[in-house]
Design a protein around this nucleic acid. Structure first.
Length: 211
DNA sequence: AACACGCTCAACCGCACTCGA
DNA sequence: CTCGAGTGCGGTTGAGCGTGT
């Protein structure tokens, strides 16, 4: 027996939003600000649940949203960030001003066949030798900072210093990102978890985005 | 013209997390 | 410390639309 749906109250509306509902929601938030989603529908005169209002506002009504298709530049960023972060759409959206997690998720699900195949190659000649902080990623009011591995090319074997193989707080060990000195994402996925912590000479199953 | 099929995307659902009492 | 309400997030669904036959 699961948790009851959020819109279980009798009379709450579901489905497509009307222009009138959008107007009510927009006006209320412009006057009173975001937050208190639970009570917002009642206060704004909407027969919707709070979650529905929040989602509608965040994904479609916010003034700073970008209209139009994902650009080639944005696509590149999405692919790289997805390789680094996996399906963490809100984090990815945080790096693309004007885009929402839902929009990026839909885009990815529609294009993943084209995006996921040929651009990743086995990583060679790389030693991961330093842990660097990523720039802070902000989602909503929450700022998240992640430790990552930094990869440098030009060495013969794939080695990771043992002391660097520590799970960070934001990613599981097999979903660790790597960035180069300039902050570009290079190595982003498929660190074999069984290798983590086994020693400096472990060969890791790494793949990277070829810049 | 009619139907089938595939794609897009808005919206829903439920779990996870946060925070205050 | 525990619990519960509120909120955030990612997965999934399904209506609508375009395209091919």
């Amino acid at each position: 027996m699961g948790r009851a749906p959020c819109c279980v109250k009798v009379g709450l509306k579901k489905g497509k939003w009307t222009a009138k509902e959008d107007e009510l929601l927009s006006k209320y938030i412009q006057a009173n600000g975001e937050g208190s989603w639970k009570s917002l529908p009642h206060n704004a005169g909407l027969l919707r649940c709070g979650k529905s209002c929040r989602q509608r506002w965040i994904n479609y009504l916010r003034a700073d949203l970008k209209n139009g298709n994902i650009t080639a530049e944005e696509e590149q960023i999405i692919v790289k960030l997805h390789a680094a972060l996996g399906n963490r759409w809100s984090l990815i959206a945080g790096q693309l001003p004007g885009r929402t997690d839902n929009e990026i998720k839909n885009y990815w699900n529609s294009n993943k066949e084209a995006s996921s195949s040929s651009n990743f190659k086995p990583m060679e000649n790389v030693t991961i030798n330093e842990v660097l902080p990523l720039p802070a990623i902000t989602t909503g009011n929450v700022e998240k900072r992640m430790d990552t591995l930094s990869a440098f090319e030009g060495l013969n074997d794939i080695k990771v210093k043992d002391e660097l193989l520590q799970p960070n707080t934001d990613m599981s060990p097999n979903k660790t990102a790597a960035i180069d000195e300039s902050g570009e994402f290079i190595s982003c996925r498929s660190i074999n978890a069984s290798s983590v912590g086994d020693g400096a000479d472990d060969n890791l199953d790494l793949e990277y985005w070829e810049i």
